[in-house]
Nucleic acid binder design. Structure first.
Lengths: 175, 175
DNA sequence: ATAGATGCAAATATTTTGCCGCCAG
DNA sequence: CTGGCGGCAAAATATTTGCATCTAT
Protein backbone atom coordinates (compact mmCIF):
# COMPACT_ATOMS: atom_id res chain seq x y z
CA UNK A 1 0.00 0.00 0.00
CA UNK A 2 1.76 3.18 -1.12
CA UNK A 3 1.56 5.68 1.68
CA UNK A 4 3.29 8.13 -0.56
CA UNK A 5 0.53 10.18 -2.13
CA UNK A 6 -1.10 12.30 0.55
CA UNK A 7 -4.21 13.22 -1.36
CA UNK A 8 -5.22 16.59 -0.13
CA UNK A 9 -8.84 16.91 0.77
CA UNK A 10 -10.84 19.99 1.30
CA UNK A 11 -13.17 20.39 4.23
CA UNK A 12 -16.41 21.63 2.78
CA UNK A 13 -18.79 23.41 5.04
CA UNK A 14 -22.28 22.43 4.20
CA UNK A 15 -25.71 23.75 4.84
CA UNK A 16 -27.99 20.80 5.10
CA UNK A 17 -31.75 20.66 5.21
CA UNK A 18 -31.73 19.68 8.85
CA UNK A 19 -28.09 20.00 9.86
CA UNK A 20 -26.84 23.48 10.51
CA UNK A 21 -23.80 25.12 9.06
CA UNK A 22 -20.66 25.34 11.10
CA UNK A 23 -17.96 27.94 10.90
CA UNK A 24 -14.76 27.36 12.83
CA UNK A 25 -13.07 30.41 11.36
CA UNK A 26 -15.18 32.73 13.44
CA UNK A 27 -13.12 31.79 16.49
CA UNK A 28 -9.75 32.79 15.05
CA UNK A 29 -7.29 33.66 17.76
CA UNK A 30 -9.21 31.68 20.33
CA UNK A 31 -6.40 29.24 21.13
CA UNK A 32 -3.78 31.94 21.57
CA UNK A 33 -6.10 33.86 23.81
CA UNK A 34 -7.22 30.89 25.89
CA UNK A 35 -3.73 29.54 26.44
CA UNK A 36 -2.58 32.98 27.59
CA UNK A 37 -5.60 33.39 29.83
CA UNK A 38 -4.88 30.11 31.54
CA UNK A 39 -1.47 31.35 32.59
CA UNK A 40 0.44 28.91 30.41
CA UNK A 41 3.83 29.98 29.25
CA UNK A 42 3.70 31.67 25.86
CA UNK A 43 6.91 30.98 23.96
CA UNK A 44 7.71 32.07 20.46
CA UNK A 45 7.17 28.54 19.12
CA UNK A 46 3.88 28.12 20.88
CA UNK A 47 2.59 31.39 19.59
CA UNK A 48 3.36 30.30 16.04
CA UNK A 49 1.80 26.85 16.40
CA UNK A 50 -1.30 28.26 18.04
CA UNK A 51 -1.65 30.77 15.26
CA UNK A 52 -1.46 27.97 12.70
CA UNK A 53 -4.17 26.04 14.51
CA UNK A 54 -6.28 29.14 14.91
CA UNK A 55 -6.01 30.00 11.23
CA UNK A 56 -6.53 26.46 9.93
CA UNK A 57 -9.69 26.13 7.92
CA UNK A 58 -9.52 22.37 8.23
CA UNK A 59 -7.97 19.51 10.19
CA UNK A 60 -4.19 19.24 9.90
CA UNK A 61 -1.70 16.51 10.69
CA UNK A 62 1.57 17.16 12.55
CA UNK A 63 3.60 17.54 9.38
CA UNK A 64 1.19 20.04 7.95
CA UNK A 65 1.25 21.98 11.19
CA UNK A 66 5.05 21.97 11.17
CA UNK A 67 5.16 23.06 7.54
CA UNK A 68 2.83 25.98 8.11
CA UNK A 69 4.53 26.98 11.33
CA UNK A 70 7.90 27.09 9.61
CA UNK A 71 6.59 29.46 7.01
CA UNK A 72 5.98 31.90 9.80
CA UNK A 73 9.06 31.10 11.86
CA UNK A 74 11.53 28.49 10.67
CA UNK A 75 12.69 27.89 14.23
CA UNK A 76 9.98 25.38 15.09
CA UNK A 77 10.72 21.69 15.42
CA UNK A 78 8.55 18.64 15.02
CA UNK A 79 9.00 17.62 18.64
CA UNK A 80 7.68 20.95 19.75
CA UNK A 81 4.63 20.49 17.56
CA UNK A 82 3.99 17.17 19.26
CA UNK A 83 4.47 18.64 22.70
CA UNK A 84 2.25 21.61 22.01
CA UNK A 85 -0.47 19.39 20.62
CA UNK A 86 -0.22 17.31 23.77
CA UNK A 87 -0.73 20.42 25.81
CA UNK A 88 -3.75 21.47 23.79
CA UNK A 89 -5.25 18.00 24.02
CA UNK A 90 -4.83 17.98 27.79
CA UNK A 91 -6.39 21.41 27.95
CA UNK A 92 -9.27 20.14 25.86
CA UNK A 93 -8.75 22.87 23.30
CA UNK A 94 -8.30 20.72 20.23
CA UNK A 95 -9.90 17.58 18.83
CA UNK A 96 -7.97 14.65 17.52
CA UNK A 97 -9.28 12.72 14.52
CA UNK A 98 -8.03 9.88 12.47
CA UNK A 99 -10.64 10.05 9.71
CA UNK A 100 -11.35 6.32 9.83
CA UNK A 101 -7.70 5.61 8.96
CA UNK A 102 -8.49 6.52 5.39
CA UNK A 103 -4.97 7.74 4.86
CA UNK A 104 -2.87 5.63 7.18
CA UNK A 105 -2.67 6.05 10.89
CA UNK A 106 -1.94 9.70 10.89
CA UNK A 107 -3.78 11.86 13.35
CA UNK A 108 -5.45 15.11 12.50
CA UNK A 109 -6.07 18.03 14.75
CA UNK A 110 -8.42 20.95 14.77
CA UNK A 111 -9.38 23.67 17.17
CA UNK A 112 -12.34 22.53 19.18
CA UNK A 113 -15.19 24.78 18.13
CA UNK A 114 -18.20 25.78 20.17
CA UNK A 115 -20.21 22.78 18.98
CA UNK A 116 -19.22 19.25 18.08
CA UNK A 117 -19.42 18.21 14.50
CA UNK A 118 -19.27 14.96 12.65
CA UNK A 119 -16.70 14.21 9.97
CA UNK A 120 -18.12 12.60 6.88
CA UNK A 121 -15.56 11.11 4.52
CA UNK A 122 -15.94 9.67 1.04
CA UNK A 123 -14.05 6.39 0.78
CA UNK A 124 -13.49 6.88 -2.94
CA UNK A 125 -12.47 10.51 -3.45
CA UNK A 126 -11.33 11.19 0.10
CA UNK A 127 -13.31 14.38 0.47
CA UNK A 128 -14.17 15.18 4.07
CA UNK A 129 -17.18 17.21 5.03
CA UNK A 130 -18.39 18.41 8.35
CA UNK A 131 -21.86 17.94 9.64
CA UNK A 132 -23.63 19.28 12.63
CA UNK A 133 -27.00 18.13 13.82
CA UNK A 134 -29.34 18.51 16.72
CA UNK A 135 -29.79 14.75 16.61
CA UNK A 136 -26.15 14.41 17.56
CA UNK A 137 -26.60 16.64 20.56
CA UNK A 138 -29.64 14.62 21.55
CA UNK A 139 -27.68 11.42 21.21
CA UNK A 140 -25.00 12.66 23.59
CA UNK A 141 -27.66 13.80 26.01
CA UNK A 142 -29.23 10.37 25.86
CA UNK A 143 -25.91 8.73 26.69
CA UNK A 144 -25.31 11.11 29.58
CA UNK A 145 -28.76 10.46 30.95
CA UNK A 146 -28.78 6.70 30.51
CA UNK A 147 -25.34 6.12 32.00
CA UNK A 148 -25.47 8.95 34.50
CA UNK A 149 -22.20 10.09 33.06
CA UNK A 150 -20.67 13.43 32.31
CA UNK A 151 -19.72 13.50 28.63
CA UNK A 152 -16.67 15.62 27.90
CA UNK A 153 -15.46 14.50 24.49
CA UNK A 154 -17.00 12.79 21.53
CA UNK A 155 -15.96 11.88 18.08
CA UNK A 156 -18.00 10.63 15.19
CA UNK A 157 -16.63 9.73 11.82
CA UNK A 158 -18.79 8.45 9.02
CA UNK A 159 -17.58 6.92 5.78
CA UNK A 160 -19.28 6.01 2.55
CA UNK A 161 -19.62 7.19 -1.02
CA UNK A 162 -20.52 10.76 -1.77
CA UNK A 163 -23.14 11.77 -4.32
CA UNK A 164 -20.52 12.74 -6.90
CA UNK A 165 -18.72 9.41 -6.70
CA UNK A 166 -21.97 7.48 -6.84
CA UNK A 167 -22.85 9.35 -10.02
CA UNK A 168 -19.47 8.67 -11.59
CA UNK A 169 -19.14 5.05 -10.63
CA UNK A 170 -22.36 3.09 -10.69
CA UNK A 171 -20.60 -0.05 -9.45
CA UNK A 172 -20.36 1.52 -6.00
CA UNK A 173 -24.07 1.33 -5.50
CA UNK A 174 -24.99 -1.74 -3.54
CA UNK A 175 -27.13 -1.54 -0.44
CA UNK B 1 3.91 8.35 29.94
CA UNK B 2 4.35 4.69 30.86
CA UNK B 3 2.78 2.60 28.14
CA UNK B 4 3.55 -0.44 30.20
CA UNK B 5 0.41 -1.08 32.20
CA UNK B 6 -2.33 -2.14 29.80
CA UNK B 7 -5.23 -1.63 32.14
CA UNK B 8 -7.77 -4.18 31.13
CA UNK B 9 -11.24 -2.89 30.66
CA UNK B 10 -14.42 -4.83 30.45
CA UNK B 11 -17.03 -4.11 27.87
CA UNK B 12 -20.27 -3.94 29.74
CA UNK B 13 -23.41 -4.51 27.83
CA UNK B 14 -26.06 -2.20 29.05
CA UNK B 15 -29.78 -1.96 28.85
CA UNK B 16 -30.60 1.70 28.76
CA UNK B 17 -33.95 3.35 29.12
CA UNK B 18 -33.99 4.32 25.48
CA UNK B 19 -30.97 2.55 24.07
CA UNK B 20 -31.37 -1.13 23.37
CA UNK B 21 -29.13 -3.90 24.51
CA UNK B 22 -26.64 -5.37 22.11
CA UNK B 23 -25.23 -8.85 22.09
CA UNK B 24 -22.36 -9.59 19.76
CA UNK B 25 -21.91 -13.08 21.13
CA UNK B 26 -25.06 -14.26 19.43
CA UNK B 27 -23.24 -14.18 16.12
CA UNK B 28 -20.46 -16.53 17.20
CA UNK B 29 -18.91 -18.30 14.25
CA UNK B 30 -20.13 -15.66 11.86
CA UNK B 31 -16.67 -14.60 10.65
CA UNK B 32 -15.49 -18.12 10.03
CA UNK B 33 -18.64 -18.87 8.12
CA UNK B 34 -18.66 -15.67 6.08
CA UNK B 35 -15.01 -15.90 5.10
CA UNK B 36 -15.52 -19.49 3.96
CA UNK B 37 -18.68 -18.57 2.08
CA UNK B 38 -16.87 -15.88 0.18
CA UNK B 39 -14.44 -18.41 -1.17
CA UNK B 40 -11.43 -17.00 0.67
CA UNK B 41 -8.70 -19.42 1.48
CA UNK B 42 -9.11 -20.96 4.91
CA UNK B 43 -5.74 -21.68 6.42
CA UNK B 44 -5.04 -23.06 9.85
CA UNK B 45 -3.93 -19.66 11.11
CA UNK B 46 -6.91 -17.86 9.70
CA UNK B 47 -9.29 -20.32 11.24
CA UNK B 48 -7.73 -19.69 14.64
CA UNK B 49 -7.74 -15.91 14.34
CA UNK B 50 -11.32 -15.87 13.11
CA UNK B 51 -12.33 -18.06 16.00
CA UNK B 52 -10.71 -15.64 18.42
CA UNK B 53 -12.56 -12.72 16.86
CA UNK B 54 -15.80 -14.66 16.82
CA UNK B 55 -15.49 -15.59 20.46
CA UNK B 56 -14.32 -12.19 21.69
CA UNK B 57 -16.79 -10.60 24.04
CA UNK B 58 -15.10 -7.25 23.57
CA UNK B 59 -12.74 -5.28 21.37
CA UNK B 60 -9.19 -6.61 21.22
CA UNK B 61 -5.90 -5.15 20.07
CA UNK B 62 -3.45 -7.07 17.89
CA UNK B 63 -1.40 -8.33 20.80
CA UNK B 64 -4.45 -9.63 22.59
CA UNK B 65 -5.58 -11.35 19.41
CA UNK B 66 -2.16 -12.92 19.02
CA UNK B 67 -2.09 -14.02 22.64
CA UNK B 68 -5.47 -15.69 22.43
CA UNK B 69 -4.74 -17.25 19.08
CA UNK B 70 -1.54 -18.79 20.42
CA UNK B 71 -3.41 -20.43 23.25
CA UNK B 72 -5.32 -22.35 20.62
CA UNK B 73 -2.44 -22.87 18.22
CA UNK B 74 1.02 -21.55 19.04
CA UNK B 75 1.89 -21.44 15.37
CA UNK B 76 0.41 -18.02 14.71
CA UNK B 77 2.56 -14.96 14.17
CA UNK B 78 1.93 -11.29 14.70
CA UNK B 79 2.34 -10.48 11.02
CA UNK B 80 -0.37 -12.95 10.17
CA UNK B 81 -2.67 -11.31 12.66
CA UNK B 82 -2.07 -7.98 10.93
CA UNK B 83 -2.65 -9.48 7.51
CA UNK B 84 -5.80 -11.27 8.54
CA UNK B 85 -7.17 -8.13 10.14
CA UNK B 86 -6.44 -6.30 6.91
CA UNK B 87 -8.43 -8.88 5.06
CA UNK B 88 -11.35 -8.60 7.44
CA UNK B 89 -11.28 -4.83 7.25
CA UNK B 90 -11.36 -4.92 3.48
CA UNK B 91 -14.21 -7.39 3.60
CA UNK B 92 -16.02 -5.05 5.97
CA UNK B 93 -16.38 -7.79 8.55
CA UNK B 94 -14.72 -6.06 11.47
CA UNK B 95 -14.68 -2.57 12.93
CA UNK B 96 -11.56 -0.73 13.92
CA UNK B 97 -11.58 1.50 16.98
CA UNK B 98 -9.02 3.52 18.82
CA UNK B 99 -11.11 4.37 21.85
CA UNK B 100 -10.21 8.05 21.73
CA UNK B 101 -6.52 7.15 22.17
CA UNK B 102 -7.21 6.57 25.83
CA UNK B 103 -4.48 3.98 25.98
CA UNK B 104 -2.00 5.08 23.36
CA UNK B 105 -2.38 4.75 19.66
CA UNK B 106 -3.25 1.11 19.63
CA UNK B 107 -6.12 -0.04 17.48
CA UNK B 108 -8.88 -2.30 18.62
CA UNK B 109 -10.95 -4.66 16.56
CA UNK B 110 -14.27 -6.33 16.91
CA UNK B 111 -16.56 -8.35 14.72
CA UNK B 112 -19.00 -6.05 13.04
CA UNK B 113 -22.37 -6.93 14.47
CA UNK B 114 -25.77 -6.53 12.84
CA UNK B 115 -26.15 -3.00 14.18
CA UNK B 116 -23.69 -0.24 14.86
CA UNK B 117 -23.00 0.72 18.41
CA UNK B 118 -21.29 3.56 20.13
CA UNK B 119 -18.33 3.11 22.46
CA UNK B 120 -18.56 5.07 25.65
CA UNK B 121 -15.35 5.30 27.65
CA UNK B 122 -14.65 6.67 31.10
CA UNK B 123 -11.55 8.86 31.03
CA UNK B 124 -10.80 8.07 34.66
CA UNK B 125 -11.32 4.34 35.15
CA UNK B 126 -11.02 3.35 31.51
CA UNK B 127 -14.17 1.28 31.48
CA UNK B 128 -15.72 1.01 28.02
CA UNK B 129 -19.41 0.44 27.50
CA UNK B 130 -21.40 -0.07 24.40
CA UNK B 131 -24.49 1.85 23.53
CA UNK B 132 -27.01 1.45 20.81
CA UNK B 133 -29.72 3.90 20.00
CA UNK B 134 -32.34 4.62 17.42
CA UNK B 135 -31.17 8.22 17.50
CA UNK B 136 -27.87 7.04 16.11
CA UNK B 137 -29.58 5.28 13.23
CA UNK B 138 -31.59 8.42 12.57
CA UNK B 139 -28.44 10.49 12.59
CA UNK B 140 -26.84 8.32 9.94
CA UNK B 141 -30.00 8.45 7.87
CA UNK B 142 -29.97 12.22 8.13
CA UNK B 143 -26.40 12.35 6.87
CA UNK B 144 -27.20 10.00 3.99
CA UNK B 145 -30.21 12.08 3.05
CA UNK B 146 -28.61 15.50 3.38
CA UNK B 147 -25.46 14.64 1.47
CA UNK B 148 -27.04 12.17 -0.94
CA UNK B 149 -24.39 9.74 0.12
CA UNK B 150 -24.31 6.05 0.76
CA UNK B 151 -23.05 5.49 4.29
CA UNK B 152 -21.08 2.27 4.69
CA UNK B 153 -19.11 2.70 7.90
CA UNK B 154 -19.44 4.82 10.99
CA UNK B 155 -17.69 5.12 14.25
CA UNK B 156 -18.65 7.03 17.34
CA UNK B 157 -16.63 7.20 20.49
CA UNK B 158 -17.69 9.18 23.49
CA UNK B 159 -15.57 9.97 26.53
CA UNK B 160 -16.33 11.41 29.91
CA UNK B 161 -16.68 10.40 33.53
CA UNK B 162 -18.90 7.50 34.48
CA UNK B 163 -21.36 7.60 37.35
CA UNK B 164 -19.08 5.56 39.62
CA UNK B 165 -16.10 7.83 39.11
CA UNK B 166 -18.22 10.94 39.61
CA UNK B 167 -19.39 9.52 42.92
CA UNK B 168 -15.86 8.69 44.05
CA UNK B 169 -14.21 11.88 42.96
CA UNK B 170 -16.28 15.00 43.34
CA UNK B 171 -13.56 17.16 41.81
CA UNK B 172 -14.41 15.71 38.42
CA UNK B 173 -17.74 17.44 38.35
CA UNK B 174 -17.53 20.67 36.45
CA UNK B 175 -19.92 21.48 33.66
C1' DA C 1 16.34 33.19 39.69
C1' DT C 2 14.02 29.21 38.21
C1' DA C 3 10.42 26.21 36.60
C1' DG C 4 9.25 24.97 32.54
C1' DA C 5 10.15 24.87 27.28
C1' DT C 6 12.93 23.72 23.37
C1' DG C 7 16.47 21.19 20.36
C1' DC C 8 18.64 17.23 19.15
C1' DA C 9 19.43 12.53 19.02
C1' DA C 10 18.21 8.27 20.28
C1' DA C 11 14.76 5.16 21.83
C1' DT C 12 9.97 3.14 21.43
C1' DA C 13 5.98 1.61 19.44
C1' DT C 14 3.35 0.09 15.80
C1' DT C 15 2.56 -1.47 11.26
C1' DT C 16 4.21 -2.78 6.64
C1' DT C 17 7.15 -5.06 3.20
C1' DG C 18 10.41 -8.27 0.67
C1' DC C 19 11.47 -12.64 -0.13
C1' DC C 20 11.20 -17.43 -0.01
C1' DG C 21 9.32 -21.81 1.21
C1' DC C 22 4.75 -24.03 1.98
C1' DC C 23 -0.08 -25.42 1.73
C1' DA C 24 -5.19 -25.13 0.40
C1' DG C 25 -7.99 -25.72 -3.35
C1' DC D 1 0.14 -27.95 -9.63
C1' DT D 2 0.17 -23.10 -8.39
C1' DG D 3 -1.20 -18.76 -6.61
C1' DG D 4 -2.06 -17.09 -2.54
C1' DC D 5 -0.46 -17.42 2.42
C1' DG D 6 2.65 -17.53 6.40
C1' DG D 7 7.34 -16.92 8.63
C1' DC D 8 11.14 -14.20 9.43
C1' DA D 9 13.81 -10.23 9.34
C1' DA D 10 14.26 -5.76 8.06
C1' DA D 11 12.20 -1.38 6.81
C1' DA D 12 9.05 2.28 7.30
C1' DT D 13 6.21 5.29 9.97
C1' DA D 14 4.78 7.66 14.01
C1' DT D 15 5.53 9.25 18.43
C1' DT D 16 8.05 9.73 22.87
C1' DT D 17 11.98 10.48 25.94
C1' DG D 18 16.63 11.88 28.09
C1' DC D 19 19.35 15.48 28.76
C1' DA D 20 21.63 19.82 28.20
C1' DT D 21 20.46 24.50 27.19
C1' DC D 22 17.64 28.38 26.95
C1' DT D 23 13.84 31.66 28.19
C1' DA D 24 9.38 33.54 29.87
C1' DT D 25 7.76 35.06 33.94
Amino acid sequence: MPSSVPRRTSAVSHRASTGERINTAETTGRLQKTVADRGLRMTRQRRVILQVMDDAEQHLDVDQILERARKIDSDVHLVTVYRTIDLLKKQGLIDELDLLHLRGDRHYYESHGPRDHIHVACLRCGKVREFESRLYEQLKEQIARDFGMQVTVSRTEVGGYCAECLALDASLRSS
